[in-house]
């Protein structure tokens, strides 16, 4: 493990910025999110950001292609996608795991999504281990190690006045080497991994998938639906929620572009078909879909939960509908 003095972090980020666009966690008033790093930004490294870095790899709205019609003819032009080398700096274990989930969705099962693929291939993930879990955090309960994630390219450890750095991939080694070459790193001999603080939540989701396989008709969903407002803030902030809509924007009568943007299974029009049939017509079906997708369908399809324990949905839910509680209720449900 190499080490970097915290007071030299700005220099390190400046060095990386010479070769890549760095996205770092930044505080913006009440909000915090990943933005392009530049001089003078106030980094938020104490706690995880309100917005996950999902939007860097999978933007909330993106142009897919533009079109122009002339008479009966038409031209389709794919959008130029110049993303360039990028570094996601300071990603927590929960959000690295969320990217692993997005990889499964966008890059497997026969089709790769080119828009996501381009960004993903050009991105180096620098993860930052958590030593001080937040009040809503439960990544450890979801089977993650808050201190490190094996899918990160570089893992940072908070060691008080210094960061420990460990490159995990070829991409990561290139980045660490670049910092080493300008003399920012020291050999971290004898440095040991930090320890993680207490979590408020401590449970195991074991058996939830199997339990939910028998709970499609459970009264639990009605109970939860009475509380839920279907506002969609949970899916909006969730680092793993990836459902999207494809829609068009007309610039004139003859030209415009297609774009895709985040969508939410919480909204009634999400599954509404032309002709009026809606397979998920009420809140009950939509609430059930969200929890079933995270805790049963996704594990069935991809072998992992679609919840990484970041706690954002719990922090911002206006009616305190908490997924940790749902997991408990599922485990306790008598079938």
């Amino acid at each position: 493990m190499k080490t970097l003095r915290k007071c030299q972090l700005d220099k390190a980020l400046d060095t990386i910025s010479q070769n890549a666009v760095v996205y770092a966690p930044v505080k913006k008033g009440e909000m915090s999110c990943f933005v392009r790093y530049q001089d003078g930004v106030e980094l938020e490294l104490e706690e995880n950001t309100l917005f996950s870095p999902k939007g860097i790899l999978f933007p909330a709205a993106e142009k897919m292609y533009s079109y122009e019609t002339t008479g009966l003819d038409m031209e389709i032009k794919k959008s130029d996608r110049e993303f360039g080398l990028s570094v996601l700096f300071g990603v927590r274990s929960c959000d690295v795991q969320a990217i692993v989930c997005l990889d499964d969705v966008f890059l497997s099962k026969g089709f790769a999504d080119e828009y996501y693929l381009t960004r993903r291939q050009e991105t180096t993930i620098v993860a930052l281990g958590c030593t001080n879990p937040g009040v809503n955090c439960f990544c450890q309960s979801m089977g993650l190690n808050p201190l490190e994630h094996e899918m990160a390219d570089v893992q940072l450890f908070d060691l008080g006045d210094i960061y420990g750095l460990r490159a995990r991939t070829e991409k990561g080694e290139i980045l660490v080497k670049a910092l080493d070459e300008v003399g920012l790193l020291a050999a971290g001999e004898g440095v040991s991994n930090p320890e993680v603080g207490e979590f408020f939540y401590n449970f195991s989701p074991e058996g939830v998938v199997e339990k939910l396989q028998m709970m499609f008709e459970s009264p639990l969903w009605n109970e939860l639906a009475q509380k839920c407002l279907n506002c969609g803030v949970c899916t909006f902030l969730c680092p793993t929620c990836h459902c999207f809509d494809i829609s068009g924007k007309k610039q004139t009568a003859h030209c415009g572009h297609k774009l895709r943007c985040w969508d939410s299974c919480m909204f009634s029009e999400y599954t509404l078909m032309a002709g009026g049939h809606n397979p998920r017509p009420t809140k009950m079906e939509r609430v059930r879909q969200r929890f079933m997708h995270k805790l049963r369908y996704f594990p069935e399809r991809y072998g992992k939960f679609l919840c990484t324990g970041c706690g954002r949905c719990m922090a911002k839910c206006p009616v305190n509908l908490e997924i940790t509680q749902v997991i408990r209720q599922v485990k306790e449900a008598v079938i």
Binding site: V105, F106, K109, G110, F111, D113, H242, C243, F244, D245, I246, R260, D263, C265, Y270, T271, L272, M273, P279, Q289, M292, H293, R296, Y297, F298, E300, R301
Partner: peptide, 16 residues
């Protein structure tokens, strides 16, 4: 209802 056709946009699922 479908948007992508390639199993990614999420809305045409029945279970998994």
């Amino acid at each position: 209802r479908m948007k992508c056709g390639i199993g990614k946009c999420g809305r045409c699922n029945i279970g998994s």
